[in-house]
C-alpha cells in the first residue's frame, strides 16, 4: 500500500509543471537583457567625456601600428602588444585591431574609445545574463537580474570601463562568457 502511494506521488516528467520563472512583469528574456545593457550604458555614460589616462597613451596614441588605422592591422597581428616587448612580450592583436579601427574613424579621439568601452561592457553584461539564463534555466528572473546588476555596478569594474586600454579585459570576458553553454551541454 505504501509502495503504491509512493508510486502515485512520482509523476512522469511530462506531467511535471514547469516552475514559475517569471517575476519581471512578463518581460521576455531578450528585453530583460536589453534593459540590463541599457542600465550598464547609463551607469558608465559619465566616462564618455574623459581623456586618455594611464596606459592609454602607450597603447593607443603612441602606438605606431594603431595610428596607421586599418592598414596597420596586418602589423598588429604579426607583432607583440607593445614595441620592444615593453612590460613583457604580450600578444593581444584583437584589442589593438579595435583601437586601429577606431583611430581610422576618429583619430586621436578618446571619446570613441570610451564610447566603445561602455558599449562593449553593456553587451558583455547582456551576454552574461543570457549565459546565466542558459546555465540555470529555471531560476527566478529577478534573482538573475540581481546577480547581473551586482556584477555590473560593482566598483571593482570601474577601472576596466573607464580606462580605454582595458578593452582587452572586456573583450576577453565577452568572448569567454558563452563558452560555458557548450561546456555544460557536453559534459
Amino acid at each position: 500500500m505504501a509502495k503504491k502511494r509512493k508510486q502515485d506521488r512520482i509523476k512522469p516528467i511530462s506531467q511535471v509543471a514547469e516552475p514559475d520563472i517569471s517575476g519581471m512583469g512578463g518581460l521576455s528574456e531578450p528585453v530583460i537583457a536589453l534593459l540590463l545593457a541599457l542600465f550598464g550604458f547609463v551607469l558608465y555614460a559619465n566616462t564618455l567625456g574623459h581623456g586618455y589616462v594611464l596606459d592609454d597613451d602607450l597603447t593607443i596614441s603612441l602606438n605606431a601600428n594603431v595610428q596607421r588605422g586599418i592598414s596597420g592591422i596586418a602589423n598588429i597581428f604579426s607583432q607583440p602588444y607593445r614595441d620592444n616587448c615593453f612590460g613583457g612580450c604580450l600578444y593581444r592583436p584583437l584589442t589593438l585591431s579595435c583601437f586601429a579601427v577606431e583611430w581610422a574613424i576618429a583619430p586621436n579621439s578618446p571619446f570613441i574609445g570610451h564610447l566603445m568601452n561602455v558599449a562593449w561592457y553593456s553587451a558583455t553584461v547582456a551576454l552574461f545574463y543570457i549565459t546565466l539564463r542558459k546555465l540555470i534555466p529555471y531560476s527566478n528572473s529577478i534573482l538573475l537580474c540581481a546577480v547581473v546588476v551586482l556584477f555590473m555596478a560593482h566598483p571593482i569594474h570601474t577601472e576596466v570601463v573607464a580606462n580605454i586600454k582595458s578593452r582587452d579585459e572586456i573583450l576577453s570576458l565577452f568572448f569567454y562568457n558563452p563558452q560555458f553553454i557548450p561546456v555544460c551541454e557536453m559534459v
Binding site: 573583450l171 568572448f175 569567454y176
Partner: peptide
C-alpha cells in the same frame, strides 16, 4: 563556434587561457 570565440577571447587577452583548466573541472 565555441572554439572560435575561445580563440577570440585569448587574442583579446591571453589570460583567458586559464579556461583550459576550468572547462574539464566543471564536468
Amino acid at each position: 563556434a565555441a572554439g572560435l570565440t575561445f580563440i577570440a577571447a585569448m587574442l583579446s587577452k591571453e589570460g583567458a587561457v586559464t579556461a583550459l583548466a576550468v572547462f574539464p573541472l566543471i564536468g
